[in-house]
């Protein structure tokens, strides 16, 4: 493994302080692993030549230059883009949960993903905006492609603290009204909310012809329920306490949880929303790949 790729591991990244550094390391780690640079688009306006490297798309080889010099050069274009990416980060209390096997909390993980995406988007000359929310919108940075936008995003992300409970449906409605320019909406949340209300909110984005990517961030413990000893679970977001013998209840819990996930995925599929399940012990490249795939799809439309 290339040294830079290790920063895609949450447990490695968790040891590093500072979102800017984390964001850069994630993106660089990701970039080092892919053959084609995500930072260069292929629009009409020629920018420069670059020497061919194995793996590059031979469609973009400049045959004229080859004829002259016997060397392979790729034509590179200055991309003209008007893509707007809105990052919606859930900062409700449930996002603070960090299970016993997880390197970081869901919120931390989500911040890392958001920062990395911001970094990537801005380096692709696209616009990126950010909104943090719990029961209401807490902070909002309008989309911009200005390089200084990254600093603002990172600042907002670092400032974001968890409080209150999630209330996604009305918030998504409100934000959908605000995001006038069509673009990509990326939701980073554990989505512990009423599925139908949540989907209604997301549907509103789709109605406004946004591409929606749902990064469903979950703690491994929430997916596996690995507890052995009798435990008093204290509900976050104003839910009650309950004393449970986890082994006895594991099956029932998993059934309920997977039922919920099934409903959610089904709803996403129905409304053409990209659903990406993320565990907080999972590498970050999944998030970036998903974003880039969605972006390519968006550019073709």
């Amino acid at each position: 493994m290339e040294p830079s790729r290790k920063y895609l591991q949450p447990e490695v990244l968790a040891r590093l302080e500072g979102l800017p550094l984390r964001a850069r390391l994630i993106v660089e780690g990701y970039v080092s692993g892919v053959h084609r640079s995500p930072f260069h688009g292929f629009s009409i306006e020629f920018a420069e030549h670059r020497e061919y490297a194995p793996g590059d798309d031979i469609r973009y080889v400049d045959w004229k230059v080859f004829g002259r010099t016997d060397k392979f050069y790729l034509k590179q274009f200055e991309e003209e883009t008007n893509l707007v990416c809105n990052l919606l980060l859930d900062t409700s209390q449930s996002m603070l949960y960090q299970g016993p096997g997880a390197p970081m909390s869901k919120l931390e993980y989500a911040k890392c993903v958001a920062a990395a995406l911001g970094y990537l988007v801005l380096h692709q000359q696209d616009s990126v905006g950010l909104a943090t929310f719990d029961s209401e919108v807490r902070a909002l940075a309008r989309p911009s492609s200005n390089p200084s936008q990254l600093n603002q995003l990172l600042h907002l992300l670092e400032e974001a603290a968890a409080a209150e409970k999630t209330d996604t449906g009305p918030i998504f409605h409100a934000l959908a009204e605000r995001f006038r320019k069509r673009g990509i909406v990326i939701v980073l949340s554990d989505l512990f909310d009423d599925v139908s209300s949540l989907l209604t909110g997301l549907k509103h984005f789709r109605h406004r012809r946004h591409e929606v990517v749902l990064f469903h961030i979950l703690d491994p413990a929430e997916l596996d329920f690995p507890f052995r000893r009798v435990t008093m679970f204290q509900g976050l977001e104003q839910l009650p306490r309950v004393l449970v013998d986890p082994p006895a209840l594991r099956k029932a819990y998993l059934r309920e949880f997977h039922d919920y996930l099934r409903q959610l995925k089904q709803g996403c599929r129905m409304h053409h929303i990209d659903y990406v399940a993320m565990r907080t012990d999972q590498t970050f490249d999944v998030a970036l790949s998903s974003y880039l795939a969605t972006r390519r799809g968006w550019l073709r439309t």
Binding site: L96, Q234, L239, V242, A248, L249, Y253
Partner: peptide, 26 residues
């Protein structure tokens, strides 16, 4: 049952639903 751990829990609504459905059987 008298000696238990305490733990915050995010996915509480699913746990509560599980408790409700599985109480008799459990």
């Amino acid at each position: 049952r008298r000696r238990y751990e305490e733990m915050p829990w995010a996915a509480m609504r699913y746990l509560l639903a599980a408790v409700k459905t599985a109480r008799r059987r459990t």
